[in-house]
Amino acid sequence: MKNPIVASSLLLLVIFSLIFSSCNNDDDDPTPAAPLEATTFKDLNATSAKLYTFFSFSKGDTISRADSATNKWDIAFMSTKVIFNSGISGPGNAALSLQNGVFDEITVVSDTMTFKQDSQSGLALTKLSDKGWYNYNGETHIITPLPGKVLVIRTADGKYAKVEILSFYKGAPASPDATKTEETGFYTFRYIYQPDGTKTLE
């Protein structure tokens, strides 16, 4: 084309029509899915040796221990022990499917995932080193969350979330010091909660 103005006008026209048509397509979708952002919860205090600290995904925070017998919590922590609001632990219908993978890559609760609840025969998430969420080093006494373990969770009221535990020490230091017992037992974890009841986790 010889005339640059004509050429660029035509190009603009094409671009506009493309944008216009794609906007139309969007309008056809009834619910535009806004991507869910991962939230990092820092230093959940689970230092008590006798009492659990309860957490609700819908609230995005810990809840009072007074509500332990209700459906208000989903997951609870006490030292290295993690329980879910189900079976022997609570009245809810929470459950866990422990997955191997990268947090960002687990985007949907697939049908192949099997969920376990806390029962007499065992907790959904074992408290043993290397079998559950952490590794315990017998020499340094350091608790390290196992990389590549993603907790896909059904909440007490049947919604879904995914969690990656990042640290067991206050402030999530790069090299924790196990001798500082006052800084041990603080969970830092990353999670995505899907409030709409679907199985999409992104």
Partner: peptide, 14 residues
């Protein structure tokens, strides 16, 4: 199938 976490950024990767 083996994952590694950066102790500083806490980012997990293969």
């Amino acid at each position: 199938k083996i994952y590694i976490r950066d102790p500083k950024t806490l980012k997990t990767s293969r």
